[in-house]
Design a protein around this nucleic acid. Structure first.
Length: 604
RNA sequence: GGGGGUGUAGCGAAGAUGGUUAUCGCGCCGGCCUGUCAAGCCGGAGAUCGCGGGUUCAAUCCCCGUCACUCCCGCCA
């Protein structure tokens, strides 16, 4: 790296600066004298001749100290160890034909070394730098600076940069302004727990880190900026998951004077653009749309993986008269019986079926009923109850000999989600989830309210600023559970990757929503007063969406966790093992902040 | 808040009904070696088997507890 200093100050330490990168040289460069800077990736000393693979961000070049090289040079080369940072000078030469390495972009040439300069040494490594480190995740995070050197991490960091760049390009070209919103804001408890920042100047008061820029982007619309986007960091103090971190990045978008379809369209274009620019992948011209009810019924999930079929079906027509009490009683209680035809799984062992049942049970199913389809009809499991109707059943389910029929009877929601989980698992087990296939779809028409059984009240399913669909406006108080919102989720390969809505810009409708979820005028004023105030001054109709950058990158990179596409993620318990956060702070710092600790007893 | 899994040398793993010297690969150190590209060959160092307690003549192995990590349910408007 060039060291830049103001003129006439401290002398620059001179070293052999690179004239090419380690990924650049080709046969056409034969005969050139070049300097490379990089890290010793591997070193192979054959006694007479020594090969040093030099690595930087751009690639790996084989450099060679020949047998007839000066003894001094050979000695220095022999002292090099993995991950020493060095400069080498030499001449590019064609490799002998039989020595060409077709695996390497630089494999037709090598650098005949004339000089070596050790720029810095490396201690023995805690793990080796390989395509993907095989060290445990926690160790990789402790030494993230080494992990970042692995080609795998470097590729993902490049992908992340490329996608962000494409996003900026895309929105810029369409007249969006990138506007930054504050990271220290008013706490508006609703949804996830807030991270709090105590105020020194205002004893007893706190800022919150934003769970998303939601309220600010709506205010930006009131501010007349018309089209906004931001690569926004969001903070939610909830337990982590493979696809969830305490802090994560959203591509936050909001637009004025738009309808739902405008937002869906531009989001489709955004991903078509980003996938084309970064993965050279063409996405479909438009993404299929399903209603919430449809995906729950068919895929048993509000984030369906549509890379494969295996649809859930209604089994309730075959229950009456079967004599199977377990199913009967569920239907009498207003529940549902859902069935899934697992194609070609008729040979599953008892153990395999039990494993599928365990999956269903995680999602609260009481059991997983099953029947095998053979040449002779239904066999095994609960088949004896359905023998008379077997023709009908096979026809309705499209089941054939060699299939396995799986059923869950429970409340509609549990039956769907539990069997949906079984479907997901089968998709993976049967190899139907090619990570190179990118199957986007929209889920629309979400219910606006959900009944909270514990609190005995209605809650906003998404957030309180989403618009009810037009046809419910007159009557939404009468049956809140029926009300569909102008809400939409974007789903990719079974992952929710974006979520958005058309917002309420009419204060009267907003008041009615608050009333339905049991929010008093005073409470609404206290929490969201600034937004309601803004809405007194001619707010434009507006709506937006917020794609989760990390999740999308994870899927683009074919990874199982977003940690692989974040340079410095926290581990599963919110700790960063590298710098050791969170950590205790000085008593004096707490005092400044007017904060006293009240720690749990057994916390050592 | 709940459930599953893991913890053995710097790293990744194997291991035994509870028994004497705990194994393998990579890395590390030393030596040999003209063409490798995960180089090869020879030799060497390196482990209180996560920690604490219990059972036992004897525990890395069994039991209890605990810690750390990891995945999942809940939670995540």
């Amino acid at each position: 790296m060039p060291i830049i200093l103001p003129c006439g100050t401290i002398p620059v330490m001179e070293y052999m600066k690179r004239t090419a990168t380690c990924g650049a040289l080709r046969l056409a460069d034969e005969g050139k004298d070049v300097v490379l800077n990089g890290w010793v990736h591997r070193s192979r000393d054959h006694g007479g001749i020594q090969f040093i693979n030099l690595r930087d961000r751009c690639g790996i070049t084989q450099t060679v100290v020949d047998e007839d090289a000066p003894a001094e040079l050979k000695k220095l080369a022999g002292s090099l160890r993995m991950e020493y940072c060095i400069a080498v000078k030499g001449r590019v030469r064609k490799r002998p034909d039989s020595m060409v390495n077709p695996e390497m972009p630089t494999g037709e040439i090598e650098l005949q070394i004339t000089d070596i300069e050790v720029l810095s040494k490396s201690a023995p490594l805690p793990f080796m730098i390989e395509q993907e480190s095989d060290a445990k995740e926690d160790l990789r995070l402790t030494y993230r600076y080494l992990d970042l050197r692995t080609p795998g991490m470097q590729e993902r960091m490049k992908l992340r940069h490329d996608v962000i760049f494409a996003v900026r390009e895309f929105f810029h070209e369409r007249g969006f302004y990138e506007v930054e919103t504050p990271t220290m804001i008013k706490s508006t408890p609703e949804g996830a727990r807030d991270f709090l920042v105590p105020s020194r100047l205002h004893p007893g008061k706190f800022y919150a880190l934003p769970q998303s820029p939601q309220l600010f982007k709506q205010i930006i619309m009131v501010g007349g900026l018309d089209k906004y986007f931001q690569i926004a960091r969001c903070y939610r103090d909830e337990d982590a998951r493979g696809d969830r971190q305490l802090e994560f990045t959203q591509i936050d978008v909001e637009m004025s004077f738009v309808t739902r379809d405008d937002v869906l369209r531009i989001t489709e274009e955004l991903f078509q653009y980003a996938f084309r620019k970064t993965l050279q992948t063409e996405l479909p011209e438009s993404f299929p749309r399903f209603t919430y009810h449809e995906v729950m019924n068919t895929y048993g999930s509000d984030k369906p993986d549509i890379r494969f079929g295996l649809p859930l079906q209604d089994f309730s027509p075959f229950v009456e008269g079967s004599g199977f009490k377990a199913f009967d009683s569920v239907l009498e209680a207003g529940g549902a019986v859902k069935a899934l035809t697992a194609k070609g799984c008729g040979g599953y062992s008892r153990k395999q079926i039990t494993q599928l049942e365990d999956t269903a049970k995680i999602y609260q199913a009481k059991g997983l009923a099953w029947m095998k389809v053979t040449e002779n009809g239904l066999e095994g499991g609960v088949s004896k109850f359905f023998a008379q109707k077997q023709e009908e059943i096979l026809a309705a389910l499209g089941a054939e000999a060699g299939d396995l029929i799986l059923m869950v009877a429970d409340t509609w929601r549990t039956a769907c989600t539990a069997l949906g989980a079984v479907r997901s698992r089968l998709g993976k087990d049967l190899g139907l989830t090619d990570p190179k296939t990118f199957a986007f779809c929209w889920v629309i028409d979400f219910p606006l309210f959900e009944w909270n059984e514990e609190g005995r009240k209605w809650e906003a399913a998404h957030h309180m600023f989403s618009m009810p669909q037009q046809q419910y406006l007159d009557t939404m108080e009468q049956n809140p559970g029926e009300v569909k919102g102008d809400l939409y989720d974007l789903v990719l390969n079974g992952n929710e990757v974006a979520s958005g809505s058309i917002r309420i810009h009419d204060p009267e409708i907003q008041r009615r929503i608050f009333r339905i979820v049991g929010f008093s005028e005073e409470e609404a004023e206290k929490r969201f007063g600034f937004l309601l105030n803004a809405f007194q001054y001619g707010p434009p109709p507006h709506g937006g969406i917020a794609p989760g950058l990390d999740r999308i990158l994870m899927i683009m990179a074919g990874e199982q966790t977003i940690k692989e596409v974040i340079a410095f993620p926290k581990n599963s318990v919110g700790v960063s093992p590298m710098e050791g956060s969170p950590s205790e702070v000085d008593e004096a710092q707490l005092k400044d902040l007017h904060v006293k600790l009240d720690l749990p007893e057994n916390d050592a």
